[in-house]
Design a protein around this nucleic acid. Structure first.
Lengths: 135, 135
DNA sequence: CCGAATCCCGGGGGATACTG
DNA sequence: CAGTATCCCCCGGGATTCGG
C-alpha cells in the first residue's frame, strides 16, 4: 500500500509497502544511482567469478574507456560493493573483488538479468507497436 | 561463469551465466535505461495499488515536473510497462495502469526496494569510511 | 600496469508559459 | 484536467594526453 504523507517541516515521505521513503534521503535513490550508471552493473557482473585485475576487467569490457573504468571502480569501492588491493610488485598490480555487500547485490542483479532476457521480446514488441501507432 | 567471446564480424558477446549478451543489442541495457531514469521506478511504484490519473500521480510525486511526468509515462507506455486510457469526459480524464509486464517488473522493483532499505546503512557507512580516508 | 588531468559534447532533466 | 512548447543548464561520460 503506497501513500504520501507530510511529516515535519516540508519533509515529504512516501510510504511503500509500509516503508517510509524520504525524498531527500532515499535508500533506493542511492542504489538506483549506482545501478543506473552505464557500467556499474556490468562491472559487478565482471567480478562475479572472483577477483580481477584492472587490465582483466578492461579486456572483459572492451568498450569502456580507461577513465570510466577507473571512476566506476572508485564509485563501487566508495559505496562498499568492492575492495581494492594493491600488490607492490613491479610493475604494480591492483586487484578488485566483491565485498559481501557486493555479492549480495550480485544476486539481485542476476534476477534482473534473468528478467530482462525473459521479457526482452515483449519490450521490443511493445516498442514496435507504439512506434507504428505514431504516424 | 562469465566469459567474453567473439562471434561474427566485430560482434562482441559477453556470456553471463551462459546467457549471451550482445553489447549492441543488450536486453539488460534496455531495462537498465528504464530503471535508471530518475522517475521511472517511482512511477511504477505509484501505480502499484491500481490505476491512477495524471493529477493523482502528480500529487503522489510532488517533486516531479509536468514535463518529466508526461515523458516518463510515455517512455513506460512505449516499452509496454503501462497502458494509457483516455475517457472522453469534460474535462477529459486519463488513466494509467500497469500491464502484466509492468506488474511483473514491479515484483523485481519491490525486491530492489527491500534490498536498498536493508543495506542502506552499510552503504552509508562504507561511504563515510571512504571519504574519511581521503585526506 | 594503473591510473590522474584536461578538454569537450550530448542529452537528461528543471522552470516557465501556453493550449484544448 | 492533461498535456505541449521553449529555453537553458548541468554533468555523465568519451577522447586524448601525461605520470609513477
Amino acid at each position: 500500500m503506497n501513500k504520501m504523507i507530510d511529516r515535519a517541516e516540508g519533509e515529504r515521505v512516501i510510504l511503500i509497502d509500509g516503508v517510509a521513503m524520504s525524498m531527500n534521503d532515499c535508500p533506493v535513490r542511492d542504489v538506483l544511482d549506482s545501478v543506473g550508471g552505464k557500467w556499474t552493473s556490468l562491472m559487478i557482473l565482471g567480478l562475479a567469478d572472483g577477483p580481477r585485475r584492472f587490465s582483466q576487467l578492461r579486456r572483459f569490457i572492451p568498450d569502456i574507456s580507461q577513465r570510466m573504468l577507473t571512476q566506476t571502480l572508485r564509485d563501487l569501492q566508495r559505496d562498499g560493493y568492492i575492495t581494492r588491493t594493491v600488490y607492490p610488485t613491479q610493475p604494480p598490480s591492483v586487484e578488485y573483488a566483491l565485498t559481501p555487500l557486493g555479492q549480495s547485490f550480485l544476486a539481485l542483479l542476476r534476477s534482473l538479468v534473468h528478467w530482462s532476457t525473459e521479457n526482452h521480446d515483449a519490450i521490443r514488441a511493445a516498442r514496435a507497436v507504439y512506434d507504428a501507432e505514431q504516424d
